[in-house]
Computed example of a mutant assay.
Amino acid sequence: MMDALEQRLAAAPVVPLIGENDPARAVKTTQALADGGLSVIEVVMRSPGAQAGMEAILDQTEGLIVGAGTVLTLDQAKSVVASGAQFIVSPGLVDEIARYCIDEGIPFFPGTMTAGEVQRAYALGLRKVKFFPASLAGGVPMLKAFSSVFGEMRFMPTGGVSAANLPDFLSVPSVIACGGSWLTPANAIDAGDYAQVTALAREAVDIARKARG
């Protein structure tokens, strides 16, 4: 799965976050993102209906890679995998989730923001991690500093990433992709304006292509 995920992210290195309690709206939001060229989706487990939304996306769409974000415990990780999650993202590094994902062959992106956390992830056998919260944890300068000492590590900055600073993050060679919720604005989704979501996705894809040459 990691190989397929890497191929998708090489083509469009942006992972939109969907935080939606209504499965029908989650599906519509996902389709709007896919129409804009983004096919790797992170459904954040921050609300009671989020997992049902992820299940609906997996059931009602095709050709996408759909993962679960904001996974906090091992039990939750097992639950979302049972529901079909194809990758897992956490806000922090939890050893037992990392070991479970490695054993099961599930791509796992734990949140890291210090050298100690990145080194711990490396020691556990991970080579790709989330950098979170990116804007508060030092942004591009911190990523460059990490890259100089952790040559094998690849990062997915999330938290404070936007269309304005996306080129700066993607200019760092160790960045595999950027995650963000700016692509799924609540006001547009509340209004049923999925065309705006598609337009933001297309803009992100265009920015990424220019940034990556």
Rank of each mutant, 00 (worst) to 15 (best):
A115W: 00
A199N: 10
A24K: 11
F169K: 11
E152C: 12
D35V: 04
G105T: 06
S39N: 15
T29D: 03
A208W: 01
F109E: 01
F169Q: 04
L143W: 07
G105V: 10
D59Q: 15
M142T: 14
F132G: 10
K144Y: 04
A195L: 06
M2W: 10
G138C: 02
V94Y: 10
T114V: 08
A24F: 00
D168Q: 14
Y194P: 05
L33I: 09
G67N: 06
A82H: 08
G92H: 14
A115Q: 04
V89A: 07
R8T: 01
A115G: 12
K28Q: 14
L126G: 05
G125K: 12
D75T: 11
V66L: 11
M54E: 02
D103W: 08
G49Q: 04
F169M: 08
I207G: 11
A4F: 00
L5M: 13
I106R: 05
G49N: 06
S79A: 15
A211C: 07
R99M: 15
G151N: 14
A4V: 07
S83D: 06
G111I: 06
S147D: 12
E20Q: 13
G139N: 02
S147G: 13
P107G: 09
S90C: 11
A24M: 06
L64N: 07
D3R: 14
L72P: 04
F87S: 02
V43L: 13
E6W: 13
A204R: 07
W182M: 05
V140E: 02
R154E: 06
I18E: 00
K130G: 00
P157N: 08
G179T: 03
A208H: 09
S162P: 10
L93V: 08
M156P: 04
A24R: 11
R25F: 00
P110H: 05
